[in-house]
């Protein structure tokens, strides 16, 4: 066999891998659900049928119907419209928080993994201490300390709390990579540390980072929803899903389940869709 055919054989491996992704039903389902919510987040007002604050006093706690698909809450607001519009808040906050955590975590992880030594030791101790406290608890502590809650604060808190996890994952990957001889080879052509770190090591750590990002995004949804449910996440009265559940769930004992169930399902579907995607990526990258 010639080298040319060897090359072709390898290319089929690549396309076979992509086929794995296309054939992965879980991935397709996850991507479809996430796309739906992403569209809702962008075009929320267009898809919604009423304004999120419009109150119909004739329809208080009314069950799902042709007029109000998901029913109305105790203020007579359309649950369907609030669920659709609420998607923007949780998706944007979770995404930005994860982005912040991934950026900080990746920077610290790269530095710690490559520089090793004292910097690594001190940093790892601090990160370990931070992650010794459950995410929700440390977030609540931060909210109490700051004295108020808002989207920006939630983004910052969750971003900071996720930093240790991302940093640890990236550090472990970098440690593994820097053992490999291509790093020695780069040193043997007089490359600077920054070049080795960003041009040689980082591209190899990227798949790990991408998967870690999607996993964290799932957790961010989890954390943002929980915080707002506990009343410590967002501005009061926001159409956010967690807040909706918090405001309405005591009604389920009177059999008014719709204002609670639909935002709950929305949270579940987003979280699950992201999980399905990260699971599939894990398989494709063969991590």
């Amino acid at each position: 066999m010639t080298d040319e055919t060897a090359k072709q054989a390898q290319q089929t491996v690549l396309s076979e891998r992509l086929a794995v992704l296309r054939k992965n039903k879980a991935f397709i389902v996850g991507a479809a659900i996430l796309c739906f919510w992403a569209l809702s987040a962008i075009f929320g007002k267009l898809i919604a049928r009423y304004d999120q604050d419009f109150m119909d006093y004739e329809y208080i706690n009314s069950a799902p119907s042709g007029k109000y698909w998901f029913g109305t809450d105790s203020n007579g607001r359309d649950v369907y419209s609030r669920v659709i519009i609420g998607s923007r808040i949780i998706l944007v906050i979770s995404f930005l928080a994860t982005l912040l955590g991934a950026f900080l975590g990746a920077s610290l992880g790269l530095a710690a993994g490559y520089l090793k030594g004292k910097f690594d030791m001190v940093l790892m101790r601090i990160l370990e201490a931070i992650s010794a406290i459950p995410v929700i608890i440390i977030a609540l502590l931060a909210v109490a300390a700051i004295g108020r809650s808002s989207s920006i604060i939630t983004i910052l808190i969750i971003g900071f709390i996720f930093t240790p996890n991302v940093a640890r994952t990236v550090r472990a990957a970098v440690l593994g990579e820097s053992e490999l001889e291509y790093v020695a080879a780069a040193k043997l052509r007089t490359e600077k540390t920054a070049h080795i770190l960003f041009r040689e090591v980082l591209p190899n750590v990227l798949p790990t980072l991408i998967v870690e990002f999607t996993v964290r995004l799932g957790y961010a949804i989890f954390a943002v929803a929980t915080l707002s449910f506990l009343g410590a996440g967002l501005e009061a009265g926001s159409p956010d899903w967690g807040t909706q559940v918090a405001d309405t769930w005591s009604l389920i004992f009177t059999n008014v389940w719709w204002p609670t169930l639909f935002p709950s399902l929305a949270i579940a579907s987003v979280a699950v869709s992201i999980n399905l995607i990260s699971d599939a990526l894990l398989e494709v990258f063969e991590l």
Partner: peptide
């Protein structure tokens, strides 16, 4: 495999 950067 280890000596050549697999991303380059």
């Amino acid at each position: 495999d280890q000596a050549l950067n697999r991303r380059h």
